[in-house]
C-alpha cells in the first residue's frame, strides 16, 4: 500500500475539485464544500494517485489507521484551500498556496524545515495581524474563517498554542484564564462564574499538568521557563476546550516528564469529534500522540502528506529524503 500523498496543489483533492472556484475567500460559497468532502473520502481518493515510496511501502494507509470505519460520519472541520499570505508590513509572501483538510476526530502533524512557514500558517489561521491573506479560503465548521475576528475564531472553537507565547506583565494568570473562560461561557449562553467556582473548575486541570498553584498568581508567562510556558498554553487549552487545537512546537523545550504530562493532557482532550494539528520537529511527540496524517511543509506549501511513518523517514534521512521526490 502506498503511504505518500503528493500534495501538489493542482492534484490535491479539494483544490482540484474547486479549481474553478474563485480563490478569494470572500466570494467563496460555503454550503457546497462540506457535502463534497464528506461524500468522497478525499484521502482514499488520493491513494490511487500516489507514487509508491519503497521505503514506506509496507505502511498502512493513513485512512485505515485512523478512521476505523467511521469514515462515513467524519465531517470536515477545517478546509484550507490555496491559501497564500504575506507579511502585512513588507508584503513578503510566506504562504504560497496551502491546501489542508482536517476532518473531525483526526490528528494531523505538520513537519518541515525551519522557516518553511509552519508557524505562519497557524498564526494566519487564528487571525494574527502580522499577516494578510492574499488568496485562498479557509472554512472552519462550515463557516468562512477569514471573515472572523481573532476572538470570534477562538470562540468558534479554534485554539492555537503559540510557539513563543508573549509575556503580559501586570496581568495575573488566573485572571486571564478566568476572563477567557467567562468569554467562552457568554458565547455559549451560559452564566459567567465567579472566582471561587472558577478555581474549583481549574484546579484539577492544573494538577493533571503537574503545575504548581503559584503559577496562577504570577503574571501571564512573565519569567516562565520555556517548558512552563508550553504547559501554560496547554492549561489554557484544557480550560477553554477546542474543536481544533493547533499546537505549535508544544514539545520543544519540554523535559521527558513534561512531555508525558502534556501529551497525556492533550490525549485526554481528544474525542471522536475534535481534532488536533501539531507542528513538531521530532518524532518523540508523535509517539505520545499518534497522528493520522503527517504533512511536510516547504517554502510556504504542503508538499507531501502521509502517515506516521513519514516521521521515521525524516528522522533517518532528513528532509532530503522527502523533498527529493
Amino acid at each position: 500500500m502506498a503511504a505518500f500523498l503528493p500534495s501538489n496543489p493542482s492534484t490535491s483533492c479539494c483544490s482540484f475539485k474547486f479549481s474553478n472556484l474563485p480563490s478569494k475567500s470572500h466570494v467563496f460559497t460555503l454550503p457546497a464544500l462540506p457535502l463534497l468532502c464528506r461524500r468522497s473520502n478525499y484521502h482514499r481518493h488520493h491513494l490511487s494517485l500516489n507514487r509508491v515510496t519503497a521505503a514506506l511501502s509496507a505502511v498502512d494507509s493513513p485512512l485505515k489507521s485512523s478512521s476505523d470505519g467511521q469514515d462515513e460520519k467524519s465531517q470536515p472541520l477545517l478546509q484550507v484551500t490555496g491559501l497564500t499570505a504575506v507579511i502585512a508590513e513588507s508584503k513578503q509572501e510566506i504562504l504560497k498556496g496551502v491546501n489542508l483538510l482536517v476532518n473531525e476526530g483526526e490528528v494531523h502533524a505538520i513537519m518541515g524545515k525551519n522557516g518553511s512557514g509552519k508557524s505562519t500558517l497557524s498564526k494566519v489561521l487564528v487571525g494574527h495581524p502580522d499577516y494578510e491573506v492574499t488568496e485562498g479560503s479557509v472554512v472552519f465548521k462550515g463557516e468562512n474563517l477569514l471573515e472572523m475576528e481573532p476572538e470570534e475564531r477562538s470562540l468558534a472553537g479554534l485554539f492555537m498554542s503559540f510557539q513563543s507565547p508573549v509575556e503580559i506583565p501586570g496581568v495575573n494568570n488566573i485572571d486571564f484564564l478566568h476572563m477567557a473562560y467567562n468569554a467562552r461561557r457568554r458565547k455559549l449562553g451560559q452564566p459567567e462564574i465567579g472566582p471561587i467556582e472558577f478555581y474549583a473548575y481549574l484546579y484539577p486541570k492544573l494538577e493533571r499538568l503537574s503545575m504548581k498553584t503559584d503559577f496562577l498568581n504570577r503574571n501571564v508567562n512573565e519569567g516562565f521557563s520555556g517548558g512552563e510556558r508550553k504547559r501554560n498554553e496547554i492549561l489554557q487549552l484544557a480550560v477553554l476546550g477546542a474543536d481544533l487545537a493547533i499546537l505549535d512546537e508544544i514539545d520543544s523545550g519540554l523535559d521527558v516528564d513534561a512531555l508525558r504530562d502534556v501529551a497525556k493532557a492533550v490525549n485526554g482532550l481528544l474525542t471522536p469529534k475534535n481534532s488536533l494539528l501539531m507542528i513538531t520537529h521530532y518524532r518523540r511527540l508523535l509517539e505520545f500522540i499518534k497522528p493520522t496524517f503527517i504533512h511536510i511543509m516547504e517554502d510556504g506549501r504542503i508538499i507531501k502528506t502521509g502517515d506516521a511513518s513519514i516521521a521515521t523517514v525524516l528522522e533517518e534521512g532528513g528532509y532530503k529524503a522527502i523533498s527529493g521526490s
Binding site: P129, E149, P150, E151, S154, A180, A183
Partner: peptide
C-alpha cells in the same frame, strides 16, 4: 499588539 492578540486568541474581545 502581540499582547492584545494574545487576549483575542483566547476569545477575549479587543476592548476588554
Amino acid at each position: 499588539e502581540s499582547q492584545l492578540f494574545y487576549f483575542q486568541a483566547r476569545g477575549i474581545d479587543l476592548e476588554t
